[in-house]
């Protein structure tokens, strides 16, 4: 349209008003006939008429046309004009509307790196209706590109590099790092906790293998067990092997808790040797113990049948050994007093 206006201005210099009027009338009528014949409307719009240098703005081309007409869009590849570059080119989108018309739109994201007012001349679209071809032009546009930076005057000499722009701190800037490192720390803490938990459980399991220490003194348990064996009269019921097994087990159990040595996992020879090396037991008690263990071994492993006297002697020696080696706990006066009170109250 601007071109038309300029042409008209030039023409006014050469032709008189009538002639000009006639020409304008013919041209306007001609255009109106052409566009209305095709009934095609083309518009070009910009999101913003002003951007900073390097900023981006959307250029939208929109055509309203009848369904039976074919339109060729202008071929824009890299630039719209010399100073306006295309950053992103969208596809042609179509929309059918009720009155057999079609609206086609295409979006271009454009930018400019030259400051100043840039003129975008009307864009031309080719209209093909059957065999006839015509051109429809969009409206012209202008884009103001502003340089936000101060102009450098080289005549002022060298200047220092500008420091970083001081911006206020925002938590949003580090929130991703907080999530990342926080997550890693949490995972590490979980792993350490799992390791410690596993280790504790393992230690618990290891320690659970240790035999529980009896609450009563070892000799009390041993004497009670020997009483039971005596009452059961196993050897009289022809259960000699069981009798000797129980007696030797009772004595070995007693040694295990009294002297804290693994007598149940030791052989008779090993038990005697380790007790001998302790030098805690008198010779007579050692002889009694040796008689009990050796005879028990013979009965248990060699089908030996001892005499009735030997059975009695074994039991007697067991009692003697326990009584002679038992650990006496000296009670305090208060404990003695408490026991006496308890006994009196029972009576």
């Amino acid at each position: 349209m601007n071109k038309v206006v300029i042409d008209l201005f030039n023409m006014t210099k050469r032709f008189n008003i009538k002639t000009i009027f006639a020409v304008i009338l013919v041209a306007v009528l001609g255009m109106a006939t052409s566009v209305s014949a095709q009934n095609v409307n083309v518009t070009a719009t910009l999101d913003s008429t002003m951007i900073f240098i390097g900023g981006q703005v959307d250029l939208k081309l929109e055509i309203s046309q009848p369904n039976n007409v074919t339109i060729n869009f202008p071929l824009l590849n890299d630039t719209v004009t010399k100073n306006i570059e295309i950053v992103e080119k969208g596809g042609i989108d179509s929309l059918n509307i009720d009155n057999k018309r079609l609206i086609l739109t295409q979006l271009f994201r454009v930018t400019s790196f030259d400051s100043g007012l840039h003129y975008i001349s009307p864009l031309e679209f080719e209209i093909i209706d059957g065999e006839s071809r015509s051109i429809a032009s969009s409206n012209a546009l202008s884009l103001m590109v502003v340089n936000p930076f101060k102009e450098v005057d080289p005549e002022k000499g060298m200047t220092d590099i500008k420091g970083p722009i001081d911006t206020p701190f925002k938590i949003v800037e580090i929130i991703n790092y907080i999530y990342l490192y926080g997550g890693i720390l949490l995972a590490l803490a979980l792993l350490i906790w799992l390791y410690l938990y596993y280790r504790k459980n393992k230690i618990d399991k290891d320690t659970s293998f240790k035999k529980p220490k009896p609450t009563e003194p070892a000799h009390i348990i041993a004497l009670r067990e020997l009483d039971k064996i005596k009452e059961s009269k196993l050897w009289e019921h022809n259960k000699v092997k069981q009798f000797y097994t129980e007696v030797s087990n009772t004595i070995r159990n007693y040694i295990e808790h009294r002297y804290e040595q693994p007598a149940l996992e030791q052989t008779s020879v090993e038990i005697l040797a380790s007790l001998k090396s302790n030098n805690e037991i008198d010779k007579k008690s050692m002889e009694q113990l040796q008689q009990v263990l050796e005879l028990s071994d013979l009965v248990k492993f060699a089908k030996f049948t001892p005499l009735a006297d030997e059975n009695g002697l074994t039991l007697m020696n067991s009692y003697f050994f326990v009584n002679q080696t038992k650990l006496e706990v000296i009670k305090s006066l208060e404990e003695e007093k408490q026991i006496m009170i308890n006994n009196e109250s029972k009576e």
């Binding site: 052989t267 008779s268 020879v269 090993e270 071994d297 492993f301 060699a302 089908k303």
Partner: peptide, 10 residues
């Protein structure tokens, strides 16, 4: 010995 005792096994 005519019989085995735990010492022999060990």
């Amino acid at each position: 010995r005519g019989y085995v005792i735990p010492e022999d096994v060990r």
